[in-house]
């Protein structure tokens, strides 16, 4: 009887060790993934910033007017098509 109990206790102890180990492993993985998510978020934010810097209205206007020689058409050049 005592022997059985001892064996059961021992097995359960092993089980505790195993599950503790598993939980640690998964926790590490979780932190890694979270870290990666944060990094990607950061990267996304930087890209957003970069995009809005390139797309500054002043810059677009300058390029449109000087490089591409664009003008706003005056009303005589606009033709309106109604459906």
């Amino acid at each position: 009887m005592i022997l059985t109990l001892a064996i059961v206790t021992f097995t359960s102890a092993l089980g505790v060790i195993y599950s503790k180990h598993q939980s640690r492993k998964e926790f590490v993985q979780l932190t890694q993934l979270q870290h990666r998510r944060d990094q990607l978020n950061t990267y996304w934010g930087r890209l957003q910033l970069e995009q809005s810097t390139w797309a500054t209205h002043g810059r677009i206007q300058k390029i449109a007017r000087t490089k591409l020689q664009m003008v706003i058409p005056n009303s005589s050049k606009i033709v309106r098509l109604s459906p």
Partner: peptide, 16 residues
């Protein structure tokens, strides 16, 4: 308005 517009006018509008 319904008649085909001068091509240049359309191009200008679209690009702007």
């Amino acid at each position: 308005m319904a008649i085909s517009p001068p091509a240049s006018a359309v191009r200008l509008t679209a690009s702007t």
